[in-house]
């Protein structure tokens, strides 16, 4: 089975489950309409979900994803208290700047998840990604250092090891 067909079947199952969750199941017509809509969606836009082969086993990747989710939740709660501390302080203790970090991830999906996580964690916001040299530019509200290696360890190092296990 090629990667494109597997992606189409995944999209079909996911969209049919979402349809079943959103409607009352009390009639056969609802299920038939859901099958037709899911088939149209997977035929038109199904080939974009899975694009590359993964090397690790799926159960191991699933557990890594669970650990990653809880770590991300904890970082996000810390980020919100950080913003609340800055906003409620009368003196506005900020020291903003744009810094550059490097990443070792290669897949597009891994880089997307890494940049979204960086945006939602304390004090950082992704501005631009350079895919050729694997550099990410980050707006930091409280700049601690200006060295590239040091910033890579401080900002990206929290997530990169787990994301390597999930996506590569």
């Amino acid at each position: 089975m090629t990667i494109k067909n597997r992606s189409r079947i995944t999209v079909f199952i996911l969209s049919f489950l979402v349809w079943l969750a959103l409607t009352h199941i009390g009639d056969i017509q609802e299920v038939i309409a859901g099958l037709i809509v899911a088939f149209i969606v997977s035929a038109v836009a199904g080939k974009f979900l899975l694009t590359t082969e993964k090397s690790e086993h799926i159960i191991k990747r699933f557990f890594s994803a669970i650990i990653y989710f809880f770590k991300f939740l904890w970082e996000m709660i810390k980020a919100n208290f950080h913003v609340a501390y800055i906003v409620l302080n009368p003196n506005l203790p900020i020291k903003p700047g744009i810094v550059k970090i490097k990443t070792n991830l290669t897949k597009d999906s891994a880089i997307t998840v890494l940049t979204n996580s960086i945006t939602l964690t304390p004090g950082t916001l992704t501005v631009d990604v350079n895919p050729e040299t694997k550099e990410i530019y980050i707006h930091w509200i409280d700049v601690l250092s200006t060295d590239v290696e040091e910033n890579t360890r401080l900002i990206g190092g929290r997530f990169e090891k787990l994301l390597t296990e999930v996506f590569e």
Partner: peptide, 15 residues
Amino acid sequence: RLPDVYNRLQAATKC
């Protein structure tokens, strides 16, 4: 409260 568009974007998006 925050002074420029990048800082505003950070606080507003997260919270």
